[in-house]
């Protein structure tokens, strides 16, 4: 017997959707800091819960901040 498909309704937990942020600013380091790991890698959306459209904007912002030496490329 195939299992019935269970549809889980998950709460919306994208940080930017919840706070109604439309554009992510690359200069806002305190916000970006939450989305990089201890090795300064960009945290995958699966772990941070950021929706895909915001994840795209977020990764762009983090990369810009890295170029401007606002965020590290890597931590040893």
């Amino acid at each position: 017997m195939p299992r019935p498909n269970e549809t889980k309704v998950r709460p919306k937990n994208c940080f930017f959707c919840v706070n109604n942020v439309k554009e992510i600013d690359y200069k806002d380091i305190n916000t970006l800091r939450r989305f990089i790991s201890s090795y300064a890698k960009i945290v995958p959306p699966k772990r941070s819960g950021v929706c895909s459209s915001h994840q795209r904007k977020l990764s762009q912002a983090i990369k810009r901040a890295r170029i401007m030496s606002l965020l590290p490329f890597t931590n040893k």
């Binding site: 890295r66 401007m68 030496s69 606002l70 965020l71 590290p72 490329f73």
Partner: peptide, 14 residues
């Protein structure tokens, strides 16, 4: 303070 040194500078003005 810069996240990493740029041209041997550790601090900078934005």
């Amino acid at each position: 303070k810069l996240a990493y040194p740029v041209k041997k500078a550790f601090h900078g003005y934005y």
